[in-house]
Design a protein around this nucleic acid. Structure first.
Lengths: 112, 112
DNA sequence: AATATATACATAATATTATTATGCATAATA
DNA sequence: TATTATGCATAATAATATTATGTATATATT
């Protein structure tokens, strides 16, 4: 997603955070919301999105609810309690990552 | 490196930046310097390091010089001009990445 | 009415990136 | 003398994502 390898490994964190502030979301909605927030910068591909959602389900981090909208199905994902804890953990990891990368990249942020 | 998938995709950026401020470095030295700067947080494994250095060489981003230290060889890597341009590019990508992740994770940093 | 685009899910083949394990060898330290 | 540190390298495997493809309904455009 984006022509930078840096996004590799951050999709789960992104999805968890979006779910965390929307109560429940379906796959397509997640891609649209991510694009919206980043002003078109972050395109989540389906080949990455759906396997990731299925894995979150398998780990018990989300519950799934299928709704029919007209003749079309939507699969809504909602964080479980464990999923909420995982989100907190992932966000803390992101903070750590940014702190460390900042130190590596900018000598000003390095420890004495 | 570290128990977080977020680092996936950032090794090349890290190495380029370290080379950028050291004139020339050898592989083992890179791992030690990274560990030093991050106070032991960032462990670069050899299985990731050497293939990455070889790829930088193949792309013309570094020149290699083999020196014998006693009976032991060291392969020094030094940025080429193209490698320096690549470093600037990668650092800009890192800034963009951090900006976007911040927006995703913290509503305060989202565009209106 | 026909066609294109958007919505909505899913998976297979492939590529990228890294971990873990292994191998070889010299130098320093306990 | 045995362990740890230094120094390079690669193979097997795992994790993560891209690209391509498939299926289908809904909406907008010509």
């Amino acid at each position: 997603m984006k022509n930078s390898s840096l996004y590799k490994g951050s999709l789960t964190t992104i999805i968890l955070k979006l779910l965390n502030e929307h109560d429940k979301m379906y796959g397509y909605q997640i891609t649209q919301r991510a694009e919206e927030i980043t002003q078109g910068e972050l395109i989540i591909t389906e080949g990455a999105l759906y396997p990731c959602l299925h894995k979150l389900k398998a780990k018990g981090f989300v519950d799934v609810e299928v709704l029919m909208i007209g003749n079309r199905k939507r699969k809504y994902y909602k964080l479980t309690e464990e999923g909420t804890r995982e989100t907190v953990k992932k966000l803390a990891e992101l903070e750590d990552y940014i702190t460390i990368m900042r130190a590596l990249v900018n000598p000003k942020f390095r420890p004495e």
